[in-house]
């Protein structure tokens, strides 16, 4: 097989699949992060009473504390999910497309 030009790559099904998958995962993860953070902000704005509840009877820790720490930790986990996906799925697809261009 001869090397493909940029224009051939643009019509290549593998390339189109790669773009579609990458855009979809970026969009999903971005949406999750937005929901996570603005959900937290919405709770503070509209339901302070819930955040002020205690996590259990006799504890002085409010529900708000694990939720806030949870937003930080989950944000980090989302970046981990992306790296895991990209290393396992995206990089091999990129490699395959690159080989088509160079071969």
């Amino acid at each position: 097989m001869s090397p493909k030009t940029v224009h051939q790559i643009l019509d290549d099904p593998d390339f189109l699949e790669l773009v579609r998958k990458k855009d979809r995962i970026s969009a999903i993860l971005t949406a999750l992060e937005l929901v996570l953070y603005f959900g937290f902000i919405a709770l503070i704005a509209y339901n302070k009473a819930y955040l002020a509840e205690k996590i259990s009877a006799g504890s002085s820790i409010t529900i708000g504390i694990p939720i806030a720490v949870g937003v930080i930790v989950l944000s980090w986990i989302l970046t981990g999910v992306y790296v895991f996906w990209a290393n396992g799925k995206y990089d091999p697809m990129v490699k395959a497309v690159k080989e088509k261009m160079e071969r």
Partner: peptide
């Protein structure tokens, strides 16, 4: 107290956006 914690969360959440987009 807790308000300070709320504030700190806001400074982290931009990073996933940097990564994804």
């Amino acid at each position: 107290g807790y308000d300070g914690l709320i504030y700190s969360v806001g400074w982290l959440v931009g990073w996933p956006i940097v990564m994804f987009l």
